[in-house]
Design a protein around this nucleic acid. Structure first.
Lengths: 210, 210
DNA sequence: TAAATGCGATACGAAGACGTATCGTATCGA
DNA sequence: TCGATACGATACGTCTTCGTATCGCATTTA
């Protein structure tokens, strides 16, 4: 991982020299990774307000200077750490809409069952108002791609006739993703197996009597 | 509002004397309210970790001692403030399941459109892991009552035959509430009018082709 | 009127985090 | 080998918040 690839470092050199090596000892990739890891785990424990550079340094086994050499402050550090989060949904297999939605929702349930990921998500929602750049980056790197996968499955279902032609894609999308959010809110109760199937089937067939 | 009614104050008197007046100047109800208000608005701005007693005192126009006389520390203060939150859903009118769900979901959308309420909610989710007592109280006073209203409407729908007999009440509940959560996540985009109707109708009729 | 309690204001020391600076050592290119 | 840069460690002054204590005044009961 080079400075040019990640954009992590605050590089004072002109862009023209980006590909060239600077003299002296290069920055440690190991330190980079340790700092990102420590930042994310401390964020999950304490939130953005509770995150402190000194603890990040201690947990990463790194001097404070090594952090300040790379990032000007707390928010920038966290901002780069967020971009490392992405836990992508699996690619739908395209057999049937029902199967694809099932697989995607089960993957989401699984991700939310990991306490660290669940907390990262909940915390980011809460801090969104206070640190808008954080929320924006999380939205771009994690949330929107995830939504787009689901939207495309729904659109394909309309195209193949598996779904009604006039399905409200967004309403359906938010019912699907929201069902996982609303359910897994507490974190302590893992979403029970079969939950994804129940949601998908109820949504596909509808609550109304025939 | 008396000490006995609210349980706010840390009362050193034995319970037997609860109804009796203590000598000396009584505690100011106005200060109580100002402290609760300031606590909630500062919580919405900064979260639990960012909440600080000195700012609460300043915003409430109150001395620090007046706060510490009532609560031993930050978390207890916040804990009582949370109990003041409850924004109850309207009582369903019982005309039809569709109408009732529509009204409830619209009320939820409206509540989440208020930035302060939306932030309070998101923050509480995030802080839940760190301050379990906070989350527990919020769950008891706000979330569970709200869920129960929706559940009862769904159950009634099954009883009247408006809904399928084998409807999965919990899956439907979480799709309904979750659709609002997932949609209003950003806070900046107010949920557009008609969203609740779209969700309810999609859920009642189902996505599947006939 | 006297005793008791609450009020807002303010001062205090302790603790912790901030961001900077400076050690001596390590690792690179030339 | 030499200059340059990064490393981990640590010391520093500053700021903020904590929770406690005290002030003089206000409000209540007896």
């Amino acid at each position: 991982m080079s400075t040019a690839e990640t954009g992590l470092a605050q590089d004072d050199q002109p862009a023209a020299l980006a590909g060239q090596r600077r003299p002296g000892r290069p920055r440690s990739e190991r330190a980079d990774r340790a700092i990102m890891d420590a930042t994310l785990s401390l964020f999950a424990e304490s939130g953005a307000a509770g995150l402190c550079i000194e603890k990040v340094a201690a947990r990463a086994g790194v001097g404070k200077a090594t952090i300040y050499r790379r990032w000007p402050g707390k928010e920038d550090l966290l901002l780069d750490a967020i971009a490392w989060l992405k836990a992508p949904l699996p690619e739908p297999r395209g057999q049937s809409v029902r199967e694809d939605l099932l697989m995607l929702l089960e993957a989401m349930c699984e991700q939310f069952a990991d306490p660290r990921q669940a907390r990262e998500f909940a915390l980011l929602l809460g801090e969104g108002a206070r640190y808008p750049r954080l929320m924006t980056r999380y939205s771009e790197t994690v949330i929107e791609p995830r939504r787009e996968v689901i939207r495309s499955v729904l659109r394909r279902g309309v195209a193949t006739g598996e779904l009604r032609a006039d399905v409200d894609i967004d309403a359906a999308l938010f019912m699907l993703t929201g069902s996982v959010l609303a359910r897994s809110r507490h974190g302590d109760i893992p979403v029970e197996p079969g939950y994804a199937r129940r949601v998908v089937d109820e949504l596909l067939s509808g609550l109304g009597a025939r």
